[in-house]
Simulated assay, not measured.
Amino acid sequence: MSRKALAVAAASICIASGLTAVRADESEAARFYKGKQINIIVGSSPGGGYDLYGRLIGRYIAKYIPGAPRVVVNNMPGAASVVAMQNIYNIAPKDGTVIGAVYPQAIMEPLLGDRGKARYDVSKLNFVGSANSELYVCIVRTDTGVKSLDDFLGKDIVVGASASGGSTHDFPNLLKDVLGAKFKVVSGYPGSNEIALAVEKNEVNGACGMGWSSVASTRPQWVNGSDVKVIAQEGISSASELDKLKVEMTMARAGDDQQRQVMNMFYAPLRFGRPFVMAPNVPDDRVAAIRAAFMASLKDPDLLAEAKKMNIDVEGLDGTEMQKLVTDLFQAPQDVVTKARQIIGARM
């Protein structure tokens, strides 16, 4: 056999071996997941925005996972998703059968929150990806007389909040510290849905750190409502619908670079506004299979049509890019981190 023929044959063998290895990896994941049940743990109460996304993806992701396992969605609210995160990290199986749909703040908790409470190492998590970039909003009852962001920041009103680490707690406290807001923050509500009900019942006057996608889908009457309305946008980028109504961005009120950097510590994680995670030590082929299935489900025409009917946005972020964003935030200047921790009352 000529040298050329030998080279061609060798190359063919290598290619065939590579294809065989890929098929072996795929079939291994398929063999594992066939007949299994995957549990998506939503780290918030039923009915809120995170629950909507968790259940929407739960209805479609299975058909893209090798082996077509059954997918079940359960809720595990508490401590702004820290309870769910700790369960995923410390208790749940590490075999790729558990996915967490958690608050971004649960990811940031070891950096900005109670480091003793956050019994998990974010750097060891497997990030599946995010279903949407998020924008948060402040809402207020119209019977408070609040007509502008200046009014909202300057009035002695009461805003409802979850526990420390949740956006409804941390974002209003950010506005109090950085922008001098005068409102009182009342914590203790399990999630955003309970806070929304409290606002409607007039238990509290308003709230901040409410996901715009969930407000738009579950309470569209609040956009410019007669009883409750959106009064401010919180994040890096704005929503065109709210821009048309001249709803101001809180970030625009930052007076200097340090204020902008501190606000960025809270707002940058909104880029992974609907994060999904898996435990450490899950086999690489299963992580890859779930990541691929997650991104494929977010492009599913039926999922996108259902999301449109629900009035929620879908903007996929893959797990690798999400990992980089998280790493960059954890490498922020220490003085900025210290200031952010002081704002949310974290133990130093």
Rank of each mutant, 00 (worst) to 15 (best):
Y60N: 07
M85W: 00
L112V: 13
D121R: 06
K124S: 06
P77Q: 01
A101S: 14
I57L: 15
Y120H: 02
Y89K: 05
M76C: 10
Y60K: 07
I61S: 02
I57F: 07
M76H: 14
S123V: 00
P69S: 14
V102E: 05
V98N: 03
Q105R: 11
I65K: 09
Y60H: 15
R115D: 13
Q86T: 09
V128L: 05
G54W: 14
L112Y: 15
Y60C: 09
D121A: 05
A101E: 04
P46T: 04
A92N: 04
G96R: 00
I91D: 11
G49E: 02
N90K: 13
N126Q: 07
K124V: 11
G129D: 07
Q86W: 08
K117Y: 13
E109R: 14
D95A: 00
G67D: 11
G116V: 11
G100Y: 01
G58S: 06
P104H: 12
D114V: 01
N87G: 03
Y89E: 01
A84H: 07
Y103W: 08
E109L: 06
P110G: 04
I65N: 08
I107N: 05
Y60W: 09
K124N: 07
R115Y: 02
G47Y: 12
K124A: 14
A92D: 05
N126V: 02
G129M: 15
G67Y: 14
I107P: 06
G129N: 03
D95M: 02
A80N: 02
R70G: 06
A118H: 02
Y120V: 08
I61P: 03
G100H: 06
D95Y: 02
A68S: 15
A62M: 04
A106F: 04
K124R: 13
V83H: 05
I99S: 00
N75Q: 03
N126W: 01
I91S: 01
D121W: 03
R119E: 07
N74R: 14
D114N: 14
N90E: 07
L56Q: 13
G49C: 11
A62W: 13
A79K: 07
L125P: 08
N126M: 03
I107L: 15
M85V: 06
D114K: 11
G67V: 08
V122F: 10
R115W: 00
A62I: 04
D95G: 00
D121G: 00
N87E: 13
Y64N: 12
G129P: 14
K117R: 05
S81D: 12
G67R: 14
Y103L: 12
I88Y: 07
G113T: 08
V122R: 08
I91M: 01
M76L: 15
Y50V: 08
N75F: 05
A84M: 01
L111V: 09
V82F: 04
N90D: 03
N75A: 13
A79H: 04
K94G: 06
V83F: 11
A84R: 04
D114Q: 10
Q86C: 00
A118I: 02
P66W: 04
G58E: 06
K117S: 13
G113I: 08
E109D: 00
L56T: 08
G100P: 04
G129K: 11
R115A: 13
T97V: 08
K94L: 12
G116Q: 12
I99L: 02
G58W: 08
R119W: 04
V72S: 10
A118P: 08
